[in-house]
Amino acid sequence: MNIFRISADLLHLASFFILIFKMKATKSCKGISFKTQLMYTLVFTCRYLDLFHVLGMMITFNFAHITGLTLYNTFMKILFLAASYYIVYLMRTELKSTSDDARDTFVLWHILAPCAVLALIFNAQFTILEILWTFSIYLEAVAVMPQLMLLIETGEADSLSSHYMFAVGGYRALYLVNWVYRYATEPYYSNWIAWIAGFVQTALFGDFFYYYFVKIMSGDAALKLPT
């Protein structure tokens, strides 16, 4: 565990709270892609299946392999799952009337199918858990596509949405730094699958980061994209 990893997880956690705060404060989910949020619930569901194993060990008081890191990871996994499902729940119940589904036009199987095929071919182990974990890594890298398309179509984002996107995009960039740090300081095998996917994921936010920093520099309230 290192400072880059901890700050990455906290930035990721912040992204959930920014989005939930924005949806609750404005009582609206306008400009937020439901499809991207749905993809994130699928990402965490496929990635954190080992939760059942860890929780099973805890309720049977088998603490032999439970380390502090495992506790931290378990706590964060539960938080991430709860937050992402809550967001999807909010968008389909309380805030359904404000949903932007008409403009949320990205075709999901364009990312689901390639990720599933890639996970079956390029994985570390051909086991259900590992293939689902790998699928979640690939899917998370492109899950932001529907949101980016919606943002481009809208042409601009209010400040909270842009801070949300910065947090979601920034956390994986910090994970890349964490991997470099671990590679340099630990006998750590660099998981090239997570590396490449993490790099693609961060790159996808690239032009968004550019407009975000331009907005910060120019002190604009809303993020403007070239229409």
Binding site: R5, D9, H12, L49, D50, H53, V54, M57, H65, I66, T67, L69, T70, N73, M76, K77, F80, A124, L129, E130, W133, Y175, N178, A194
Partner: peptide
């Protein structure tokens, strides 16, 4: 063995 199926990150 770590109960987290070999992945110790989120």
């Amino acid at each position: 063995v770590s109960p987290e199926s070999g992945h110790d990150e989120l």
